[in-house]
């Protein structure tokens, strides 16, 4: 960060306008993620930020990454977030008044401002670029962006690429193990939570049990009493869930 104002004259008006609009979108989305009370709104604000970042990627000639950003992040990850939000029914208003750790928010603000100031100071003051020639390849060489990126990933970074395959398999197996329901594993705290496992065969095992419980969770959580679940789960899951979902929608 040497000249924060200098390069403006060397660029076209369209580039400056694109950056300004995209930066405004990114910042508005980022603030919205933090500020929004409803997690669904936070997720949609996050989509806005991701699109803005994708625009900035295109502006910097990273076309493939912009496409991947939109497809993987906005298309898959946010959908996963929204799915979990709706499945668990955690779109409950957060209680903002209570602070369990006293003075946490002012401390967080102070720390973040200090950190940002540190980043800017280091960015303006330090010059860590060595000027060494690039190992992975020139970014502005001839040819399409995908070809250069593919060449880099499949030659210089071949071993990390193979490792990501193992990582993805481990993640999938880990997720399955985490959310799998084991019959015997129940803690003492489960007595007052609802009857997800209390009567496993109550609705004949027709596959509606999981969704019924999700609906119950959202209905109970939206009552606004903030926390402990009552014994709604002892009702018929299917009936209770449809009724409450209508009420909360």
């Amino acid at each position: 960060m040497t000249h924060l104002v200098g390069p403006l004259v060397a660029t076209t008006f369209v580039d400056a306008l694109t950056f300004t609009v995209a930066a405004a979108i990114v910042l508005a989305g980022a603030v919205g993620v933090v500020v929004a009370r409803n997690p669904v709104h936070s997720a949609l604000m996050l989509v806005m930020t991701l699109f803005g970042v994708a625009v900035l990627f295109v502006e910097q000639q990273a076309d493939f990454l912009a496409a991947v950003q939109v497809i993987v992040y906005a298309g898959a990850i946010i959908v996963l977030f929204l799915f979990v939000i709706m499945l668990l029914g955690v779109d409950r208003r957060e209680v903002f008044g209570r602070e369990n750790l006293r003075g946490q928010r002012p401390m967080a603000a102070i720390l973040v401002v200090l950190g940002l100031a540190g980043i800017f100071l280091l960015g303006f003051g330090a010059h860590w670029a060595t000027g060494a020639p690039s190992v992975a390849g020139r970014a502005n060489a001839a040819g399409p962006n995908v070809a250069k990126l593919g060449t880099s990933v499949f030659t210089t970074y071949l071993l990390p690429f193979e490792a990501t395959a193992a990582l993805l398999v481990i993640a999938v197996v880990g997720a399955v193990v985490l959310v799998r329901r084991t019959p015997g594993a129940r803690g003492p705290d489960d007595q007052d939570d609802a009857g997800l496992e209390e009567h496993p065969g109550a609705d004949g095992g027709d596959g509606t049990l999981a969704f019924g419980t999700g609906g119950e969770a959202s209905g109970d959580a939206d009552d606004g009493d903030g926390g402990e679940r009552g014994d709604l789960g002892h009702d018929d899951p299917a009936l209770g869930s449809t009724h409450e979902r209508k009420m909360t929608s």
């Binding site: 060489a141 880099s152 993640a171």
Partner: peptide, 24 residues
């Protein structure tokens, strides 16, 4: 240097794996 973009590629993969495990 195209290496920065390769690194973003890997960050995306790790982020996807992280989201899966975290949401689990």
């Amino acid at each position: 240097d195209i290496g920065g973009q390769s690194l973003v590629f890997f960050v995306l993969v790790v982020a996807a794996a992280e989201v899966v495990v975290g949401l689990g």
